[in-house]
Nucleic acid binder design. Sequence first.
DNA 1: TTCGGTACTCAGTGCCACACAGTACCACTA
DNA 2: TAGTGGTACTGTGTGGCACTGAGTACCGAA
Lengths: 107, 107
Amino acid sequence: MDGLTEMLKGTLEGCVLEIIGSEETYGYAITRRLNELGFADVVEGTVYTILLRLEKNGLVQVTKRPSGQGPPRKFYALNDAGRAELATFWAKWEYITSRLDKLKEGG
Amino acid sequence: MDGLTEMLKGTLEGCVLEIIGSEETYGYAITRRLNELGFADVVEGTVYTILLRLEKNGLVQVTKRPSGQGPPRKFYALNDAGRAELATFWAKWEYITSRLDKLKEGG
DNA sequence: TTCGGTACTCAGTGCCACACAGTACCACTA
DNA sequence: TAGTGGTACTGTGTGGCACTGAGTACCGAA
C-alpha cells in the first residue's frame, strides 16, 4: 500500500509506543515488527526519529546493552508518562475512527 | 477532544472528499458538517485550504452561485478523478485501521 | 578482506492541518 | 445610518511529523 505517509502522521508514534509498551525493545527490532505488521515501507530512519522524540519528551526509559551481533542496542521501555501518552493515543484513535465510521455511514 | 491535529493529517481531506461526494456543497457548509460530526475544532481556514488543494489537484468541479445571505458560494462536486481518490482514501483508511486493530490485539 | 546483516545518528525535505488577518455581502436594529 | 453579527471566501505563515539519504560502526561468513 502506497501513499500512507500523511495518514500515518501521529499514528506511527502511537504504534511505536504500543510496541514498546508491550515489551522492552530496541529500534531495529521495532522497525522489523512494524514491517511484519504491514507497515512495509517504514524504514529505520523513521523509527529512530520517533524514538529520539519519545526520549526527548520524557516518555521512555532508555538502557544501552551490548548486542553480540553488531553495535550496542538502545532498549526502550515506557515510563508513567509514556503509559499515559499511550492511553491518550488510543483514546484519540478511537475517537477519530468513530467519527469516520459515522461519516462513512452517512451519519 | 484536543490534540487531534497530527492524526487528522490526510484524514481530513478524505472526510471533505466524502462530504462533497455525497452532495454538491460549499466550504462554509462543509465546515459546519464537520463540526456536527464531532470534528469540533475544525475552522473555515482549514477547510478552505483543503478545497483549494482539491481544486488544484483536479479532483473537483467548481460552480459559483449567488447566496442570498452573503457573498457567492463556491459549490464543489467530485469528478471522476475525485471519486477515484475517495475510493483510494477509504482503501488506505481500512488498511491502516486493520493494522492498528492487529497491533492493539497483540497480533 | 570484502560483503551483508545488524544498529544508531543527524541534517534536510515536503506535506498537511492550523492560526490569523483580511475582504466582502447581507439582514436586522437602535 | 451606523453598528453588529452571521455568512462566505482568500492568502500568508507556522509547526509537527513521516521520510530521505548519507554517514558511522560492529560483527560473522564467504
